[in-house]
């Protein structure tokens, strides 16, 4: 490409400008720092360049409408408390147990206590079923063994 040909120069720059707009949008402050000056000059001198830029404005406007919820002050407190607790070495037994059972994050505060409560419930159910099955089968076996033992004793007596 001939560098002295102004039309060719503009063509190249327009191509690049269209790439910049496609990638970074219409706001020149988001464009690569090293290309901002050249791009601004082109935008000033070329109606075509301004049209290219204009085509990206509506999408940028829509993107700019997306807001975020600011972090709560409790989050800052939680972060600092977590770091402080990691600093204490070794961790106090009670603190370790409470962190294990209750969790340290919001999600853990929900599922860990639920699991903590579920474990004794499940253990109780398992033990209940085991005892019931023992009562049905085991007790009969013991009873038979006792009677055999009794018979044995009777035979010995005889």
């Amino acid at each position: 490409m001939n560098q002295t040909d102004p039309v060719a120069d503009t063509d190249i720059t327009l191509t690049r400008l269209s790439q910049l707009v496609a990638a970074y949008g219409s706001h020149t402050k988001r464009w690569p720092l090293e290309e901002q000056v050249t791009a601004a000059q082109l935008l000033e001198n070329s109606a075509e360049a301004r049209l290219l830029q204009q085509a990206a404005v509506s999408l940028d406007d829509l993107l700019d409408r997306v807001t975020v919820t600011p972090p709560s002050p409790q989050l800052r407190h939680r972060i600092l408390a977590t770091v402080e607790s990691h600093n204490q070495s070794p961790l106090a037994m009670g603190q370790w147990l409470s962190q294990l059972l209750l969790g340290t994050t919001f999600r853990e505060h929900i599922w860990r206590p639920a699991i903590t409560l579920l474990i004794p419930l499940l253990l109780g159910m398992v033990m209940g079923f085991s005892l019931a099955s023992w009562a049905n089968n085991g007790a009969w076996v013991i009873e038979e063994e006792l009677s055999l033992l009794g018979l044995g004793t009777l035979e010995q007596q005889l």
Partner: peptide, 27 residues
């Protein structure tokens, strides 16, 4: 905090999950 929380929130689309991610990140 605000910058990273905003980033996590936009990535995940959810401020509650962002809280956990940012807490873990700072740790």
């Amino acid at each position: 905090l605000s910058t990273l929380h905003g980033f996590a929130q936009r990535m995940l689309g959810n401020p509650i999950e962002a809280d956990d991610i940012v807490q873990e990140a700072f740790l």
